[in-house]
């Protein structure tokens, strides 16, 4: 019965809600601690990816093996296995789709896939429903990791043996650190033969929305430019500046590894 003031109420409710939400959002950190730590962990991961499969010297088949990154519609999936005594003792995803609804699908699917991989000791695991793309990418990367385990086990224990198997020329692949860009990570893998870059490719590049087109446009050019320049001093592809800069950064980190 008290006199109602609809306008006053609307203004108050709106102001309270908007300022409350803005306050909540402001109180959250504006940079991602998870990605920062992931970036910090990246060298280790890439080092592991380097040593285990390429070095292939773990006679007893123990250590970590990282599979190739598998592209999915929502981003790359890359699996790392810890192998001990020829058995998979641990599986984890080094990369998985991020952003939007992908976050929660990844959170949902990856732990299950990890378990399934250890349980099955093979890539014949069930997909997680609702995360089919991620599951398929996972299985693909898992298979490639398993292939590497097999290759390493069967290969002669020669430290120089590359994954290609041919020992005539010293050819090896080096993967740079993943460079974070606002649109997603960029990670470059180069093949170095006799000290020269013979091939460059992006293991990871921004995906989704308009990023697909930009990646399709920029990455082949950047690959060519890297081989041509034999260094990270290459021109950015206009219209894909972030991707180009990320590419150059990751390329540089791969090149840094050739020296060492």
């Amino acid at each position: 019965m008290r006199k109602s003031h609809p306008i006053r109420r609307v203004v108050l409710a709106t102001a309270a809600t908007v300022s409350g939400v803005v306050l909540l959002l402001t109180l959250k950190p504006a940079s991602d601690p998870a990605s920062a730590s992931a970036a910090g962990a990246a060298p280790q991961q890439t080092a592991a990816a380097q040593e285990s499969p390429q070095g292939g010297a773990q006679g007893a088949g123990s250590g970590t093996v990282t599979g190739d990154a598998a592209r999915t519609q929502y981003g790359a999936v890359q699996v790392r296995l810890t192998v001990s005594g020829g058995r998979i003792t641990e599986a984890e995803a080094v990369q998985a789709p991020k952003g939007g609804t992908s976050d929660q699908k990844t959170a949902l699917a990856v732990p299950r896939l990890n378990q399934a991989a250890v349980a099955a000791q093979s890539a014949r695991i069930d997909s997680v429903s609702g995360a089919t793309y991620t599951s398929n990418g996972y299985k693909q990367s898992l298979q490639s990791a398993l292939d590497k385990v097999k290759a390493a086990d069967s290969a002669p224990a020669s430290p120089a043996a590359p994954s290609s198997g041919a020992a005539q020329t010293t050819s090896r692949t080096l993967t740079g650190e993943a460079a974070q860009t606002p649109y997603g990570p960029v990670q470059v893998r180069i093949t170095v033969t006799d000290g020269k870059i013979t091939e460059a490719e992006a293991v990871q590049a921004p995906k989704g929305g308009t990023s697909d087109q930009k990646t399709a446009l920029a990455v082949p050019r950047l690959n060519q430019a890297a081989v041509a320049a034999q260094s990270a001093q290459i021109d950015s592809v206009s219209g894909a500046t972030y991707t180009s800069n990320g590419y150059k950064q990751s390329l540089q980190s791969a090149l840094d590894q050739t020296g060492g």
Partner: peptide, 8 residues
């Protein structure tokens, strides 16, 4: 509790 950070 579920939100780590708010970026951009």
């Amino acid at each position: 509790t579920d939100t780590g950070s708010v970026i951009g």
